[in-house]
Design a protein around this nucleic acid. Structure first.
Lengths: 191, 191
DNA sequence: ACCCAATGTTAGTAACAGCTAACATTATAG
DNA sequence: CTATAATGTTAGCTGTTACTAACATTGGGT
């Protein structure tokens, strides 16, 4: 952690602290200390706190490539959904700090929301198309849009539950939960 | 909103603002203004900001009566789960501000987590027992604990998705999503 | 050995936070 | 009408925050 360059050390520290406490509750002194750097250095590199926040966001937001994923599907419900699940969970996991930042901060960055909504929306459309095609093939018959929403919301729900409520709720692990969910979901929607 | 007594006006304003921005990001001046009251009055009633936070929490936390709910069940999967769903969603809805407060604030109040974890844990145990009994009756065969976790996490996920991501994700409404979810879940777990 | 760029250190500013004290105003009840 | 309690107003204190200026220190490249 020490042989990173200065900017990265500061950005890392920012991400950690902003996601833990939110923008207003974190001080620049705190960030500097966490980064192992003088506060002055922080301002020399990022001008002001708000700018630092934006740079941290830009650097750490992870945009997945769902299109490739959907081209690799096999039109086998359980296999495909398992694949999609783990890809989506992976994306959520990689963005967990960013997502927490979003939860803790109100409308700090207008493009913040836009960026964060991009990949769920993309995934939702791809999923909806996938379900529609599965409907055409006579495999399922529910409304594809509702299914897509449902599937995404459940995945996000499982993710957020295990991420933020782990100390206060469930003891089963998320992998078991998800694989069980996919099995039930597949059986539940198959004609 | 104006014929409430002073303490209630302040507590209401606190809840709104704390859940929107988090403890540190809200000022006592802001709360006083939102409550339509002088800042001095706020301190006269609640001594300090932290105490105000705790009082707001104590006042607005809503503890449901799940035991009565489970005694009223009919051992018909879809009907029962629909009932449980809507009761849980109702609880979440009534506690939404409190839940948001929990999301935005790190370990401010030690009993905070304990209180908030009480009712999901209670519900989880009741649900798990319910599924176990349904297993004994030969209606389902999955692991009751995993099912309970799954059911709760999905419900929480749907709730939180619609609560906090409504501007950036899905356009379907939550009632449709939930009723669809229950149907799929029931079909998916029935032998 | 020297330069220069990156860092650290210290001191400080202006704004604002939480909070208090003192006094003025209102309202209500006897 | 008056006494009393609840509120408002103002001014200010104390600490902290974001941020700046000025100078000191380090360390690698030539």
């Amino acid at each position: 952690m020490c042989n990173l360059n200065t900017e990265d050390k500061i950005l890392n520290a920012s991400l950690v602290l902003f996601s833990q406490k939110g923008f207003n509750a974190v001080t620049t002194k705190e960030i500097a200390k966490e980064a192992g750097v003088s506060e002055m250095t922080l301002f020399r590199h990022f001008e002001n706190k708000h700018n630092l926040f934006e740079k941290a966001f830009d650097k750490f937001v992870f945009s997945p490539k769902f299109l490739a994923l959907f081209e690799s599907l096999e039109w086998d419900l359980e296999r495909d959904l398992t694949k999609i699940c783990s890809s989506y969970q992976d994306t959520l996991y990689k963005n967990q700090k960013i997502i927490l930042m979003h939860f803790k901060n109100e409308e700090l960055n207008p493009q913040f929301d836009a960026t964060l909504s991009k990949f769920p929306n993309e995934l939702r459309n791809l999923l909806s198309d996938y379900f529609a095609e599965m409907g055409n093939r006579g495999i399922i018959q529910e409304n594809p849009k509702v299914l897509a929403n449902n599937f995404l919301a459940t995945n996000f729900g499982l993710f957020i539950t295990f991420l933020v409520m782990n100390n206060l709720t469930f003891e089963t692990d998320i992998v078991a939960c998800i694989s069980s969910y996919v099995k039930i979901f597949v059986k539940g929607i198959t004609c």
